[in-house]
Computed example of a mutant assay.
Amino acid sequence: MRTLCAVVLVFEVVVIGLAIPIAINLEGTDPALAGGVWGGMALAALVLSGLQKHTWAYYAAWGLQAAFLFSSFMVTGALLVAVVFVSLWITGVILGRRVDEVRAMHASRAEAEEATGTHGAAEGAGPAETAGAAGGAGRA
C-alpha cells in the first residue's frame, strides 16, 4: 500500500508545483503566497513520498490531501485536479491494502507448506516430470 501511496504523492508534487505559476499568472495571486502555500505542499508531498514506510507519514499525507483540496478553491480549475488526486489517493489506499492482504495470505501459505514439507507437487520432481507422471503426455 505504501508504494502506491508514494507514487501518487510524487505525481502530486508535479501537479501542485504547476499550480504556482497558474495562481500567479491567471489568478493574480501574490507570488509569495502562491509559492508559500503550494510550494510548501509540493515539498511536503515530496518528503512524505519518501517516508511512507512510517505510519505517521501515511497519516500526514492524508492531511496533505485535505490541505490540497481546501487550497484548490483559490485557483480556478484546481478543484477538479485536487478531487482527482484525492480520488487517486483513496484508490491507492484501497488497492494497496488488497495487495498487502494477498501478499500476506501467500506468505502464510508458503510458510505453512514449508513447515509441513509439502510443496503442492511431487517432491523433487520438476514441472515437466510432474506433468509426465500425471498423464504421460508428450513422451515418445
Rank of each mutant, 00 (worst) to 15 (best):
residue 4 L to D: 04
residue 5 C to H: 08
residue 6 A to V: 13
residue 6 A to P: 06
residue 9 L to F: 03
residue 10 V to E: 15
residue 10 V to R: 15
residue 10 V to A: 13
residue 11 F to R: 13
residue 13 V to Y: 01
residue 14 V to P: 04
residue 15 V to F: 05
residue 16 I to S: 11
residue 16 I to M: 14
residue 16 I to G: 10
residue 17 G to S: 15
residue 18 L to C: 08
residue 19 A to Y: 09
residue 22 I to G: 03
residue 23 A to W: 01
residue 25 N to F: 07
residue 25 N to D: 12
residue 26 L to D: 14
residue 27 E to H: 13
residue 28 G to V: 04
residue 28 G to N: 03
residue 29 T to K: 06
residue 30 D to Y: 04
residue 31 P to R: 00
residue 32 A to R: 15
residue 32 A to T: 13
residue 33 L to Q: 10
residue 33 L to H: 09
residue 34 A to G: 04
residue 35 G to W: 06
residue 36 G to I: 05
residue 37 V to K: 08
residue 37 V to L: 15
residue 37 V to R: 10
residue 37 V to D: 07
residue 40 G to F: 09
residue 41 M to Y: 12
residue 41 M to D: 10
residue 41 M to G: 07
residue 43 L to S: 14
residue 46 L to P: 05
residue 47 V to N: 02
residue 47 V to G: 00
residue 48 L to V: 09
residue 48 L to Q: 12
residue 49 S to V: 05
residue 50 G to A: 02
residue 51 L to K: 14
residue 53 K to C: 07
residue 53 K to P: 02
residue 53 K to Q: 13
residue 55 T to N: 11
residue 55 T to D: 14
residue 55 T to I: 13
residue 56 W to I: 10
residue 57 A to R: 07
residue 57 A to K: 07
residue 58 Y to K: 12
residue 59 Y to M: 08
residue 60 A to G: 10
residue 61 A to N: 05
residue 63 G to D: 02
residue 64 L to Y: 01
residue 64 L to G: 03
residue 65 Q to E: 08
residue 65 Q to P: 02
residue 66 A to G: 05
residue 66 A to P: 02
residue 67 A to Q: 03
residue 67 A to D: 04
residue 67 A to G: 02
residue 68 F to I: 02
residue 69 L to R: 06
residue 70 F to C: 06
residue 70 F to W: 04
residue 74 M to N: 01
residue 75 V to D: 02
residue 76 T to R: 11
residue 76 T to Y: 08
residue 77 G to M: 00
residue 78 A to S: 11
residue 78 A to M: 14
residue 80 L to F: 12
residue 80 L to A: 15
residue 83 V to K: 02
residue 83 V to C: 02
residue 84 V to C: 01
residue 84 V to H: 00
residue 86 V to Q: 03
residue 86 V to A: 10
residue 87 S to P: 03
residue 87 S to W: 10
residue 88 L to A: 09
residue 90 I to T: 08
residue 90 I to R: 05
residue 90 I to E: 04
residue 91 T to V: 14
residue 91 T to S: 13
residue 92 G to C: 01
residue 92 G to Q: 00
residue 92 G to F: 01
residue 93 V to K: 04
residue 93 V to M: 05
residue 95 L to Q: 12
residue 96 G to N: 07
residue 98 R to S: 09
residue 100 D to P: 01
residue 101 E to Q: 15
residue 101 E to I: 15
residue 102 V to N: 10
residue 102 V to E: 14
residue 102 V to C: 06
residue 103 R to G: 07
residue 105 M to F: 13
residue 106 H to P: 06
residue 107 A to D: 10
residue 110 A to I: 01
residue 112 A to E: 02
residue 112 A to P: 01
residue 114 E to P: 00
residue 114 E to R: 00
residue 114 E to M: 00
residue 115 A to D: 04
residue 115 A to Y: 00
residue 116 T to A: 01
residue 118 T to S: 03
residue 120 G to W: 01
residue 120 G to F: 00
residue 120 G to L: 02
residue 120 G to T: 01
residue 123 E to A: 15
residue 124 G to W: 09
residue 125 A to C: 11
residue 125 A to T: 07
residue 129 E to Y: 05
residue 130 T to N: 15
residue 130 T to E: 13
residue 132 G to T: 14
residue 134 A to V: 12
residue 135 G to S: 06
residue 137 A to D: 13
residue 138 G to H: 12
residue 139 R to Y: 14
residue 139 R to A: 13
residue 139 R to G: 09
